[in-house]
Simulated scan of single mutants.
Amino acid sequence: MPASQTLFNRTKKEYLLFAHLPFSKPNEIYASDVACLIVTWYMLKNSGDDILFLPEYDSYESALEPFRHNINEYVEVTDHIVDTLIQSKLIIDNGHLWTDEDDATIYERNLIKNPNL
């Protein structure tokens, strides 16, 4: 089974983590309008940067090693990117699809692509 993906920008030392979004595996990303919008927007805004997807279970350290980067130097920008796309009216935030009853920090957001695009 394919592992969840993380998008790394080795140039800017930041990453997008799909943890609270209803897509994280390759086929889920391909099939989601919102995922495609997020990834395409990010890549166009950061054109020319060294960007790659890594499976969650691969060693991030080994992929970052050639650039002498430490994963702890990277900043997660997922919420910032999603919030920017919501403010730009490209994505509509419909709250949460679900929240874990025992741990409110475990949830999935209910985001849709703006149908008026």
Rank of each mutant, 00 (worst) to 15 (best):
D102V: 05
N94D: 09
A35S: 09
E108V: 00
D93Y: 07
S59Y: 10
V75K: 15
I91A: 06
E65N: 13
K12F: 04
F18Q: 00
T6E: 05
F18R: 00
W41K: 04
W41L: 01
L16D: 03
L52E: 13
S47V: 07
S59K: 12
S59F: 12
M43S: 06
E76C: 15
N9T: 04
D49A: 10
H69L: 13
I92Q: 11
V39S: 04
A104N: 13
Y107N: 01
A19N: 12
H80L: 09
N9G: 08
N70A: 13
I38G: 03
D50Q: 11
R109I: 05
L21Y: 01
L44M: 10
L37D: 01
T78F: 04
Y60H: 14
S88W: 06
Y74P: 10
V77T: 07
A31K: 07
I29C: 02
S32M: 10
W41I: 01
R68V: 09
Y57C: 11
L64I: 10
Y57E: 13
T40M: 00
S4D: 12
A104H: 12
S47M: 09
L97H: 07
C36S: 12
Y30S: 05
D102R: 06
D58Y: 13
S62H: 13
L117A: 11
A63S: 14
D103C: 03
H80F: 07
N70F: 11
R10F: 02
D58F: 11
P115G: 11
E73V: 09
D102F: 08
K12T: 07
T105K: 06
S4G: 14
K12Y: 07
V39T: 12
N116M: 08
D83C: 07
P2F: 10
L64S: 12
Q87G: 06
H96N: 14
L85W: 02
P26Q: 10
I91L: 14
N72A: 12
T99G: 03
I38H: 03
W98S: 05
D102N: 15
T84Y: 01
L54N: 04
P66I: 10
E61R: 13
D103Q: 03
E101L: 12
Y30E: 07
R109H: 09
K45W: 00
A31E: 04
E73N: 14
S62N: 13
L111H: 01
D103N: 15
T6D: 02
K25A: 11
P26G: 06
D33V: 02
F53C: 08
R10A: 09
D102L: 08
L16I: 15
D83S: 14
L17H: 02
L44H: 04
S59A: 13
H20D: 14
A63R: 14
K113M: 05
P55G: 13
E108D: 10
W98G: 03
N70D: 15
L111M: 05
N110L: 11
E76D: 15
K13L: 11
L52G: 08
N9F: 08
I51P: 03
V77I: 15
T40A: 00
I51N: 06
L37G: 01
T84F: 02
L85H: 02
H20I: 04
Y57P: 04
T99F: 07
L16W: 02
D83G: 05
G48I: 10
D50E: 15
H69E: 10
E65L: 15
Y57W: 10
N114C: 13
D100R: 03
N114A: 09
K12L: 09
L37T: 05
